[in-house]
Design a protein around this nucleic acid. Structure first.
Length: 245
DNA sequence: TGCCATGTTAAACT
DNA sequence: GAGTTTAACATGGC
């Protein structure tokens, strides 16, 4: 569940608790859960792949990593993987196998909200500037850079590169400006498509490259390779996806 | 059964 | 110290 759009779906699902008081808090996350009960939820926000539950004085940050999951308004069994549970008068939310931490201070000062590809304040020009400053970075690594494209994960990476016909191992500095524009545009566009399809439970159906063996455009086999410094799986077509030199 | 993955951090290296 | 590699975390699908 961990890419940005999945977090947006979660955020929307828990807005019902905004303004509500925490009746009971539990879990085995190594934070001071004891102080949560009685506090009112000020806001619930997301930035990329993480969710923020803003209390009166501190903010709880949850990152689902690779295996995290949650349940909303469901009975849950006692569970070693239960990191945090918050119970309200109108329901509950439980977080499993995820990273939970407490943040003090102003969230706006800590994160570049304009870097979130799914945010209303997404700033394409700013992303372009960041990309320009890292010409020696492969585009497959750049897409996964949360400081540039917060919320983009490996699926979105592969699908965006396939859509714009760009080879994952292309160095940013070698990519023509128009192609950079496409890259930035599609990183956001595909994220919204991902969101739409995920909500309809039909995300996988729309994958053109990720985990695929044959290129739907030319029917040649995809290359599967762990690319770049991030060593994440890339699925690409050497025939259709250009590597600029 | 064993391997692998929509992710990140920190320790251990060179 | 910088940059890179490896380990750790821990669940579920194939």
């Amino acid at each position: 569940m961990p890419e940005g759009p999945s977090i947006v779906i979660f955020k929307e699902a828990v807005q019902q608790f905004k303004g509500k008081k925490i009746k009971m808090a539990c879990g085995n996350a190594r934070i001071d859960i004891g102080s949560f009960a009685g506090q009112k939820i000020q806001d619930i926000r997301s930035w990329g792949k993480q969710i923020f539950i803003c209390l009166e004085n501190i903010t709880i940050r949850v990152h689902f990593l690779l295996f995290g999951s949650y349940s909303i308004n469901e009975q849950t069994k006692p569970d070693k993987s239960r990191r945090l549970g918050l119970v309200f008068s109108n329901g509950s939310v439980y977080f499993y196998t995820c990273s939970v931490s407490v943040i003090e201070g102003d969230l706006d000062a800590l994160y570049d909200w304009e870097a979130d590809v799914l945010s209303d304040v997404w700033n394409a020009a700013r992303a372009r500037k960041k990309l320009k400053s890292m010409p020696e970075t492969m585009v497959c690594d750049a897409l996964l850079d949360q400081q540039v494209f917060s919320g983009v994960g490996n699926i979105i990476k592969n699908e965006v590169l396939y859509r714009i016909r760009l080879h994952p191992e292309t160095m940013l500095g070698k990519i023509p400006p128009r192609k950079i524009t496409e890259l930035i545009t599609e990183a956001r566009n595909y994220s919204f498509d991902f969101l739409k399809w995920k909500k309809a439970f039909e995300l996988k159906k729309h994958w053109l490259a990720h985990t695929k063996k044959i290129c739907p455009r030319c029917n040649l086999p995809f290359i599967k390779k762990h690319c770049g410094k991030t060593h994440r799986r890339s699925f690409f077509c050497e025939n259709c996806q250009v590597k600029y030199h």
